[in-house]
Design a protein around this nucleic acid. Structure first.
Lengths: 188, 188
DNA sequence: GCGGATTCGGAATCCGCTTCCGTATCGAGT
DNA sequence: ACTCGATACGGAAGCGGATTCCGAATCCGC
C-alpha cells in the first residue's frame, strides 16, 4: 500500500527512510544534539549518502523527527483531552503531554530548538494543534474555566513555556502548568 | 587599577580582552548565532589566536557575554526592583527586565541556549540572582501578594519561561508575566 | 636599555556536514 | 524469468568553520 506511488516508487527506499528516521529518533533522544550524520547512518545500517537522499540536511532530519513527536501530541490531544468533560483537566492533560514529550526527548527537543530557534511545529500539524487549542480555549471561556479575555495565543505561549521548562529541566513543569492555568483562570 | 595583578600582569592583554568581549557582545546581538570566531577577531581588531587566548572556546566566549547581561539584570533587580514598595510591581519589573534583555539580545540568548542547553546563569551571579528572587518571594508571601506555598523555584521557573518566550518571540511576554503572577497570587 | 616572560597573529590542522558519482538494486514491460 | 532504464546506495572527496601551534612582537621589572 504505497502511500503515494508517484512520489516513491521503490519499496527499499521507503524502508530505508523509515530506518533512518527511527535511528535518528533514538539517537537524538539518547545523545541529544551531539549526534552526527555518520552516526545516524551507521545506526540505520545505511551510508551517509542515503541519509541525505531522504533528508537533504541535518535540520530536515531533525524536523522530521520533531514532526513524529508533534503528531503524537496532536493525536493525544484529540483522542484523550478533547473528550474530557472537565475543561481544566483537558487543558492540563494537553500541556502535560507536551511537557512529557519534551522531557523524554530532551535531546530531540534541544536539537530542534538549536535548528529552528523555536519549539513549535509548523505546517499542517501545527495548524491542527492550533485548532484544537482554540477549541479548548473557547470551551474554557464559555464554561468559566478561563477568564473572558483568554485566547489561543496565551495557550500557545504557555505551551512554549512548558516545553522550555521541561526541555531544560529548569523546574517542576507539572507545577508550572497548575500555576499558569490558575493565572489564566477567572479573575477573583 | 589592575583587578588582580597576579592573574593579569600585562595591560594590553586586559585591554584586548575587553575589546573582544565588547565586539562579541555587539555582533551576537545583531547577527545572533551565526557569528564566527574570525568575525569577532576582525571586529575587535585582533587575531583569532588572541580571541582564543582569552576565551578558550566559542562557548566560553558566549558565556562571558551572557555573564555581562546577567550582571545587568542583577543590578537592575537590586537597584530598581527591591526598593519598590509594591511587591507585585517589583516582581513584574524583575521579570520584565529578563524579557527585555532576552528580546534585545535574542542572538546572544539563543547562542547561550545552544551552547549550554539552559538560559540561566551559574556561579556567583546566579547565586546572587537567586538570593534576590528569594527575598522578593518571601516578601510576597508575607504581604499577601503571593500564595503561601510560592517559592523561589517557582519564580526561577517563570523567569526561564519569560526568557524562552521572549527569545523565541513565541508571544507577548509582558502578558505572560501578568498571567504567571496572577497564577502565583493568592488562591481565591 | 636589557632580557625573560607574556601575548599576538594568522597559517595549518582537525572535524563534521554536504556533495558527487560510479555501482548496485528495483520493477515494469516482454 | 530476463532485460533495461530508472532509481537508490555507499562512501570518498570537498568545504567551511572552530581550534591549535609556534615564531615574532610587545611588555615590564630591573
Amino acid at each position: 500500500m504505497p502511500e503515494n506511488a508517484a512520489r516513491r516508487s521503490r519499496a527499499d527506499a521507503e524502508r530505508n527512510r523509515g530506518r533512518v528516521l527511527q535511528a535518528a529518533d533514538e539517537l537524538f533522544a539518547e545523545h541529544g544534539d551531539q549526534v552526527q550524520m555518520a552516526d545516524v547512518a551507521r545506526a540505520a545500517g545505511v551510508g551517509v549518502g542515503t541519509v541525505y537522499r531522504h533528508f537533504p540536511t541535518r535540520q530536515a532530519l531533525v524536523e522530521a523527527v520533531a514532526e513524529v513527536r508533534f503528531a503524537e501530541i496532536l493525536r493525544h490531544a484529540r483522542e484523550e483531552c478533547l473528550p474530557l468533560p472537565d475543561t481544566r483537566q483537558a487543558l492540563a492533560g494537553f500541556l502535560a503531554r507536551i511537557g512529557r514529550v519534551h522531557e523524554e526527548g530532551r535531546g530531540v527537543s534541544s536539537a530542534i530548538e538549536a535548528a529552528l530557534g523555536d519549539t513549535e511545529p509548523r505546517g499542517q500539524i501545527g495548524a491542527d494543534l492550533l485548532a484544537v487549542g482554540a477549541e479548548l480555549v473557547e470551551r474554557g471561556r464559555s464554561d468559566g474555566t478561563l477568564r473572558p479575555d483568554a485566547n489561543v495565543a496565551d495557550l500557545y505561549m504557555i505551551a512554549g513555556a512548558v516545553a522550555a521548562i521541561s526541555r531544560n529541566a529548569v523546574g517542576d513543569w507539572r507545577r508550572f502548568i497548575d500555576i499558569a492555568l490558575d493565572g489564566l483562570g477567572p479573575r477573583p
